[in-house]
């Protein structure tokens, strides 16, 4: 079977298009690359949607945590503590079983037990909490002079926030936020290893890499391929976030611009 044929059969296997049966024996390098790449669709899906939705909630959480009013501050602090203080792995399990028991009483929760929605919600809350903490830190380090200048110009309330404080916050938070984004993409590999089942073997990249490693007893081929895909994905993320960073810092002299530093680490 040619590699082109394999690509047609398995290129979109992870979303249920193409050949149903996974290869069972005589695995070729091509099959490794195609299937693991096909799984990357899910990693990108989870990462992108969680990031976009999480950005909005993170801003709200950061403002809440910085608020002098306890009614707003306490819930934001609690939310951030719960999602940053516990392992993402356990959060996935817990959410899955909560949705499962809700489903038995309310049919409305049926889609929540599938990974595409349930796991996305967990990732959304999780990244909101982590980014919220980053934005909170940045919000605290907005230069006092900027805010005073805004006051002097008669800007108050919403216009002051939208035109002065928020852009500076984003600018200060961006390097850390880039790392959070990379880290979130790495975290998407946990989805199919926690409570959420991969129906009809439609899994993410790690799911397929693990499938090959289990079948061939040879971890030295699938995992490096997975690593390669993730390094590529990381480079793309760094590039996109770098463009945004350049845009956010366009008024700052070139030498004073903060550089994005890739500092991955960590497991959640």
């Amino acid at each position: 079977m040619s590699c082109w044929q394999t690509l047609q059969d398995y290129g979109l296997r992870s979303i249920g298009i193409g050949e149903r049966l996974l290869p069972r024996s005589d695995f070729t390098i091509c099959e490794h690359f195609v299937l693991i790449g096909s799984g990357m669709i899910w990693n990108i899906y989870f990462g992108v949607f969680a990031l976009i939705s999480g950005f909005a909630l993170a801003t709200v959480l950061a403002l809440g945590k910085a608020s002098p009013r306890a009614v707003l501050r306490k819930p934001a602090e609690a939310f951030i503590f719960v999602f940053r203080g516990s392992p993402l792995f356990i959060q996935f399990f817990f959410a899955y079983f909560v949705f499962l028991s809700l489903k038995s009483t309310h049919p409305f929760f049926d889609p929540f037990t599938s990974a595409w929605l349930g796991a996305l919600i967990v990732l959304f809350f999780n990244t909101s909490a982590y980014s919220g903490e980053i934005f909170y830190g940045a919000l605290q380090s907005v230069p006092k002079g900027d805010v005073e200048a805004a006051d002097a110009y008669g800007l108050t309330g919403w216009p002051r926030f939208r035109r002065i404080i928020w852009p500076t916050t984003l600018r200060l938070a961006w390097p850390a936020y880039t790392n959070e984004a990379i880290f979130l993409f790495h975290a998407t590999t946990l989805v199919y290893f926690s409570g959420f089942p991969a129906r009809q073997q439609r899994g993410d990249a790690l799911y397929y890499a693990n499938y090959f490693a289990d079948k061939t007893f040879n971890p030295f081929v699938p995992y490096p391929i997975l690593a390669l895909y993730f390094i590529l994905l990381t480079l793309v993320v760094i590039w996109i976030f770098g463009r945004v960073n350049a845009r956010l810092n366009r008024h700052v002299p070139k030498t004073a611009r903060p550089r994005l530093r890739y500092r991955p680490n960590l497991i959640r």
Partner: peptide, 14 residues
């Protein structure tokens, strides 16, 4: 530091 962490955990044990 460059590679997703669980991949490492799954890889290293085997």
């Amino acid at each position: 530091r460059g590679v997703p962490d669980i991949a490492f955990f799954l890889f290293f044990v085997i």
